[in-house]
Structures are given as structure tokens and as C-alpha cells.
Amino acid sequence: MLIIGECINASNRTVAEAIARRDREFIEGITKTQVEAGADFIDVNVGAGQGTQGQAIEGMEWLVKTVQAVTDKPLTIDSDVPGIIEAALRSYRGETVMINSVTAEPERLESIGPLAARHKALLVALAMGSEGIPDTVERRLETCETILTRLTSMGMSAEQIYFDPLVLPISVDSRQGLVTLKTIERIKARYPAAKTVMGLSNISFGLPSRKLVNRAFLLMAAYAGLDAAILDPRDDKAMSLVRISDMLIGKDALCKGYIKAYRQGKIVD
């Protein structure tokens, strides 16, 4: 499973303050820790509403340069504002890049889609449209169909698209875990070349022992066909389960990845 490290996100107040005061040491530290823990991509998010878009753009440019100074891992540019994404791509060095995210909403699809196509980027596509997050599998699949049709007409291939089935809190609606899992299965069956991705932590909102709930859901999602997870790679138990699930679903020939991780002390009971 591909791991996208989620820790550099301005919705976390400490991170937002570090970005605001251009704290290079803090960002370098949190980048290196995530890479050492096994992140394949580093997500970068500067938020939007605080200050002008110009300030957000400067913040994003600084963030991209600062993170790329200490790692060769590709970045996930996390924004729904085309101007911010464009600025990030201008400052970016390297071939592989991921954009997070687009939806089936026409104004986002028509602005972010062409950006991703032009830069040959990987693109996270949320299974939602103008009506919000659909609460059934069928309607989430319809939004995926809309997105895939439009993006391929812009010249993107299914391989570049990472569909996010979306996760709603199980505490509010006990059917939502299955809706997400079945959406993953159906996306993989219908578009075998496309990928799936999701953030895990939303599932446990409003519940006690959230990390344990997240980890259990990670295993079920892996079996349903999840290709990538957005999570905190510093959670060594979650990362152990990522390696174990790869092994258990036949993605780890001769269990080499698992045993290697074990020898490095990265399998935590």
C-alpha cells in the first residue's frame, strides 16, 4: 500500500503557526520523521481562508521548497484552489507529483483537471459532486464515472486517478463503514486501472480509542482493494498493519517486505 504522510497540514494549529513564521527546522523535522517512518508521498497543505490567496500561495511555495530540500520523496499538493496548486507545481522539482484533490463539481473538475493533465500529475478524485457526499454506493460510483469520463477526455489516463471513496463517521451513521468499503470494491471492479485512496481518521470521529478503530478499518479497506492511505506514518502500529495487510493479500512475494521491516524493528506489536 502506498502511504501518503498527512502531518504537514495547516488544519493542525502547530503546523499552521510553523508555516506562518516560516519555521524551516520544524518542517524539515516533520518531513524527515515521516520519510523515516515509511511515507511514500508527503502531503503539503497550507489552508486557505486565513489571509489573502497571495499569502497562501507564498506559503505553499515556501513549503514545497522547504520539504523538497530534505527529501526526494514526491509530494502530494493538498488544496482545492487552482491558484495555490499552480504555484506549488511551479516551485516543484521532480517528475512524480500528486494533486489532492478534485471532485465531480464542474468548477473544480474544469479548473483542476486541466492542471493535472498538463503536468502529468497523479490526481486524487473525491467521489462527490455538487450535492455533497452521496450516502449510497451507487451514487458515489456515478460521481466517479463523471470524473473519469471528463478527465480522460482531457488526456489523463485511468492510472493517474486515485479515487477517494470518502469516509463518513461511523458514530453518526452505522452503515457508512460498509458504504465506503463497497465503494472501493466497486471502483476496483469497474476501473481496474484506476487507483483508490482514502484518509482513515474520519471513520472514528466521535468515538473512543480512535486509533484502534482506524487501524481495524485500514485492514478491511486493504482487503476491499485500497491502493493508498493518507495517514500519520508516525503511528508505528498502523504502519505495521500496512505491511502485514500487504503480505496477507498477496502483495508481498515471499513475505520479504514484512520480514525486512521486522529486521529493521518496524513491526510493532
Binding site: 463517521p169 458514530s171 453518526v172 452505522s174 466521535g206 473512543p208
Partner: peptide, 10 residues
């Protein structure tokens, strides 16, 4: 007091 969670409240 975190004795109750969202499903309890609902």
C-alpha cells in the same frame, strides 16, 4: 466529561 460519545448522544 468524555464518558459519553456521539452515538450515545444521538
Amino acid at each position: 466529561a468524555k464518558q459519553y460519545f456521539i452515538p450515545d448522544m444521538l
